[in-house]
Nucleic acid binder design. Structure first.
Lengths: 257, 257
DNA sequence: TTACATTGTGTCATATAGACGCAATGTAAT
DNA sequence: ATTACATTGCGTCTATATGACACAATGTAA
């Protein structure tokens, strides 16, 4: 690990590099084996799992900071990323935890060190293609892995709460914008898209009504190919009509008032 | 003005009291004369109008900070308030503007003063009853007034952008949660409620279809009284069924998926 | 060749949304 | 008093959307 990214370097010099008191945390969703996955870090010297997060350089846009974190943990650029909530309770970090954590790493802190001040964090969620991600741990963690969303246990600080809020937001967003372009491979079948929706929503949908509805949005192109190799009738492949997809992203999907 | 709230006191001692680099700004909506209003501050020594905002005490929850700002500017407690977006571009504040502003007030700053560092701000929107608000300017402003939403001109920093984003959010929220309890007096007529929706959405709605839809939510109670005194047929008065209203707030209004 | 889970497509009843008709009513003008 | 009239209350009609379900076609495996 290069010194610039080492834990010690960041702890001791971060105060000069980063905005004080503000961080970003990313809930990175992927989809694989009909399961919704989330990318988590295993902290050093701890049983806790944490969301990938980071600090904001003094002249960096917060969206850019989140994008950078994403790039560093997944190797991916140009990803769907959206801020969804700020978590700003004064007690969300436990000072003792940080101090003990750093002591185990052989780092002792001045009591005014920037890292043990109160932080608020801006939560972002990202949708990425599971298949092309190369998870990379950061300076504070030993591993970076995909987890099944429904088997995530206790987490670091308030990260579980952040994760749940991201999921709630994603579910609501499903009514306003098309989802799937970032989570599925380029070509996919209708059952695969349906599984994605069912997984995000946590409930079963009627196969025929789902198809009718999703096609009515006019964002899919039906291809002439079918997915051979499955044990049953070969389903047609679809891809997103990117032009219409983007238009739907901007204008929103359905009406209401 | 008490010294504790004076401009000079806050500028010179704020660094000890407040979180660095983070502020809150509130878009406070009211409804009067069939117009959507927003509460703005006229800055001292400037033609600019600004959103009511403030800083976060070192041990204060950010939601509480926004609640406090609201209380200070409107006199109201227990108000509908919701964070909607973080504005964190590095260039959103212009240092020169602040320094000139303070110079005119006779305050000269150390170049490391907390107030001229980069800030990100958490945007909140609030819905309040126009009739019971007593606007109060803060330490940085000379007046605090309601403005018609559609005649707001240029604003301080990125406040216009914040305002527009709040409006956009409110419009989207209209599909998920009931609105009106906070913005209307206790008893109101169907045309008044419709005007509120039309004003927020910026478009006309059909009178009969509106009534059918809003009643279908089951959050209104029809009273036996009518609103006398208008120049036409007296419309019935309604009030919110608070129990069902709150339930609808929690569970959301309509389905989607 | 057959069994079978799965897919493609369609139907039917019901619910919802948008456009509009008409009589009732309260005030103001005559 | 009577009338005019804008507005309100309550309804209809139609098009579209939604939910539940039927049935034939198809690709693999037994």
């Amino acid at each position: 690990m290069r010194k610039e990214n080492s834990l010690q370097h960041i702890i001791l010099n971060g105060g000069n590099l980063f905005m004080p008191s503000v961080s970003v945390d990313c809930v990175i969703f992927g989809f694989h084996d009909n399961e919704l996955k989330v990318l988590l870090l295993k902290m050093k010297n701890s049983a806790s799992w944490a969301l990938p997060g980071g600090f904001i350089y003094k002249t960096e846009d917060i969206e850019d900071a989140a994008t950078r974190v994403l790039k560093e943990r997944t190797g991916l650029s140009d990803i769907f990323l959206k801020q969804f909530h700020v978590f700003g309770q004064p007690g969300r970090a436990e000072k003792k935890f940080h101090i003990n954590f750093l002591k185990k790493e052989g780092i002792s802190l001045d009591k005014n060190n920037w890292i043990i001040q109160r932080f608020i964090t801006v939560g972002f969620y990202a949708l990425v293609d599971f298949a092309v991600v190369t998870p990379q741990p950061d300076f504070s963690s030993v591993t970076c892995e995909w987890h099944d969303l429904d088997s995530v246990g206790d987490m670091f600080m308030d990260h579980k709460q952040i994760l749940l809020k991201a999921l709630e937001t994603l579910r609501l967003q499903l009514n306003h914008e098309p989802i799937g372009y970032q989570l599925l491979p380029e070509k996919f079948t209708m059952p695969e898209l349906q599984k994605l929706y069912e997984t995000i929503l946590g409930k079963k949908l009627d196969r025929r009504n789902f198809q009718r509805r999703i096609l009515s949005f006019g964002i899919l192109k039906k291809l002439k190919e079918t997915r051979k190799g499955g044990a049953h009738k070969a389903p047609f492949l679809y891809c997103f009509d990117l032009k219409k997809y983007r238009k739907a992203l901007e204008e929103g999907l359905q009406g209401g008032w």
